[in-house]
């Protein structure tokens, strides 16, 4: 299919974009990497009046370290994360997970911020942002707003972003000593959205996992930290028991790849393996 006609507006700065939001309201859509949006428009599932291209706004892209914080610009492309030495050394979970994001062609254009705002429940980056405790920075005419990733995702392709806001950057904490992480994903084929995925971050101390932030994705409406996993891990439970408890608590959505029972079954296995990865410091992805 061919896209229905739309206006194209190339924003040179945030103000251009805010002007468009003021004029067109929710008839305006933001174009970043376009890897989800353009197919939707080409299938005429979305027929926006105007596309606001934010790719040329300076300052929205790039990866920087300041102290123990890593700042990632919203339009930083997936391939830049994959190629970044800073990401590899300070955010190894992202470096590992990024290989599961679609295929090279998509990674060449798709953006980190775009993936978060799109909020596909089976996407890798939203789950990683939650597991890593990312802070999202949103800007509007009214100024800057900061929100934690755990609070940002509200449901299937639904976030706390207001229609007049642009996600401009994402702040993450660099890995420190004792930090361990895990990323496991089951997909039909490499590069597909997850049937089920598990990602986790923790501190390993004397064969126990502290501050375990475990997220199961591709399953529920949006990524969230498993409180059960954290408390059982802190009390020194075995991975098999934690996996069982977390899986039982899941409320998976049925999709084309499986029903709730199937996904719970698969999640249990991936959780157990991920906990093993954390305990053994095996960063295999």
């Amino acid at each position: 299919m061919k896209a229905a006609a739309f206006k194209y507006l190339r924003a040179e700065n945030l103000d251009n974009a805010f002007d468009a939001f003021a004029e067109y309201g929710d008839e305006a859509l933001i174009l970043a990497g376009g890897q989800s949006l353009m197919p939707t428009i080409n299938l005429r599932l979305a027929q926006p009046a105007v596309l606001v291209d934010i790719n040329h706004i300076s300052g929205l892209s790039g990866i920087e370290q300041s102290g123990e914080k890593i700042q990632i610009g919203a339009t930083t492309r997936h391939f830049e994360l994959a190629n970044s030495e800073l990401v590899a050394s300070k955010l190894p979970l992202i470096a590992s997970a990024i290989k599961h994001v679609a295929h090279r062609g998509v990674r060449n254009r798709g953006t980190f911020g775009g993936s978060l705002v799109h909020a596909d429940p089976a996407a890798e980056m939203p789950a990683c942002a939650v597991a890593l405790g990312a802070t999202l920075v949103l800007e509007s005419r009214a100024g800057e707003r900061r929100i934690s990733a755990s609070d940002f995702f509200l449901g299937v392709m639904s976030t706390d972003r207001r229609p007049d806001e642009i996600l401009t950057s994402i702040e993450l904490s660099a890995d420190g000593p004792g930090d361990v992480w895990a990323f496991r994903e089951l997909s039909r084929r490499h590069g597909d959205f997850a049937m089920v995925g598990v990602t986790a971050k923790a501190r390993r101390a004397s064969e126990r996992l502290e501050d375990l932030r475990l997220v199961v994705f591709g399953c529920e409406e949006c990524p969230q930290i498993s409180a059960v996993a954290a408390s059982l891990a802190a009390s020194g439970q075995e991975p098999v028991a934690i996996a069982q408890a977390v899986a039982e608590e899941l409320n998976p959505m049925t999709d084309l790849t499986g029903d709730a029972e199937t996904k719970r079954f698969q999640a249990r296995s991936l959780i157990e393996q991920s906990l093993g990865d954390l305990l053994e410091g095996r960063a295999d992805g």
């Binding site: 089951l186 039909r188 049937m195 790849t257 499986g258 029903d259 199937t262 079954f265 698969q266 249990r268 296995s269």
Partner: peptide, 16 residues
């Protein structure tokens, strides 16, 4: 599909 394999394992009562 993975779902069918699991269906087969479950109907044979296989431990995971």
């Amino acid at each position: 599909t993975a779902a069918h394999i699991i269906e087969a394992l479950r109907s044979a009562n296989c431990p995971q």
